[in-house]
């Protein structure tokens, strides 16, 4: 075992530590699930580093820079960005061996997308509900376990494995996520769907919605054709990942990783889990639309995706 110190030189607009999220059962007493907003890119970057499936990584909006004190393995991923190591161009979606003192810098092509930076090893950060994710709203996680994001000059220690070095992993081009919003996000109708009139349901699926600037890890507010629901009196109920809420103004809000556990707005259904990453990488001004998928069909697609991931993740054993 050896210890690597990571010094943050540029924390961009927002740098958080995230992992696969907290124990789902902790929602029962009000803890949000948290975890990476784009769970797809997260798992790939984490795998490239050779980390276990629930390891911490950086989730960054805007630019990012760090210096490492000792040799270590890092990998990056997300929508298009420029990447350099000591000023020399480097490639995303592949593990790299950094040397003592190396500086990694990253700058996204479109402001607002989330980039993931993984480092092989165990991060010395507190656990809350079985997760190292920083949840700003709850004041939990992070260097002082107070929910503060990672800042410039912060230092994080990572315990690396000194196992004999295995081959550095890289992702085949066809395995790189497609973030484009050209096809509709698949959505499973549910919750109060039946309380919306048929023509309102149709209007929702035939309309295009713009991503507003009121977006964060809690939820994405969209703007477009208002959808009206007759249900006015509703009691607060459990909110699942990707739930599409319709507040009285009829403008959809899609609930993401840091969503509150309960809420009282009517909901049309949920974006299918395997499509949420595309929305989580959308930036203000992007257009999205939705298409209904039945719950059995959605599960079949999830299982297919899951099997392909298993082949990727387990195909190369150490």
């Amino acid at each position: 075992m050896s210890l690597v110190n990571i010094t943050i030189q540029d924390a961009g607009m927002l740098t958080l530590v995230v992992d696969a999220g907290r124990s789902l059962a902790m929602q029962e007493v009000g803890f949000c699930v948290s975890g990476a907003a784009d769970i797809r890119s997260y798992h790939l970057v984490n795998w490239l580093c050779g980390n276990p499936r629930h390891n911490a990584v950086f989730e960054v909006i805007g630019s990012f820079g760090m210096q490492v004190s000792e040799p270590c393995i890092v990998a990056t991923g997300g929508p298009e960005f420029t990447l350099t190591v000591n000023g020399q161009p480097a490639s995303p979606w592949q593990a790299m061996a950094l040397a003592s003192g190396d500086i990694l810098e990253l700058c996204p092509a479109r402001l607002g997308t989330r980039s993931y930076i993984g480092i092989a090893g165990q991060w010395a950060l507190p656990l809350v509900a079985e997760s190292q994710s920083i949840v700003m709203r709850e004041g939990a996680g992070g260097l002082n376990n107070d929910g503060q994001p990672i800042r410039r000059h912060d230092q994080i220690s990572i315990q690396t494995n000194d196992k004999p070095s295995r081959q550095l992993r890289s992702l085949l081009p066809q395995a790189i996520p497609d973030y484009s919003l050209g096809t509709a996000l698949q959505m499973i109708p549910g919750y109060q769907y039946a309380s919306f009139e048929g023509w309102q349901q149709q209007l929702f699926f035939s309309s295009e919605y713009e991503v507003t600037n009121q977006i964060d890890r809690m939820g994405y507010r969209l703007k477009g054709q208002p959808i009206v629901c007759d249900t006015r009196t509703m009691r607060s109920e459990g909110i699942n990942f990707g739930a599409i809420q319709l507040p009285p103004d009829g403008q959809p809000i899609v609930m993401l990783s840091d969503r509150q556990t309960l809420g009282g707005y009517p909901k049309l259904g949920c974006v299918a889990e395997y499509d949420i990453y595309r929305l989580a990488q959308a930036v203000p001004g992007d257009k999205v639309s939705f298409a209904p998928v039945d719950i059995d069909n959605a599960r079949a697609q999830w299982l297919l995706r899951h099997r392909l991931d298993q082949q990727l993740f387990e195909g190369e054993s150490q």
Partner: peptide
């Protein structure tokens, strides 16, 4: 009883 996402029933 209604679907609530890919992995949920409410």
């Amino acid at each position: 009883i209604e679907p609530a996402g890919i992995d949920g029933l409410i």
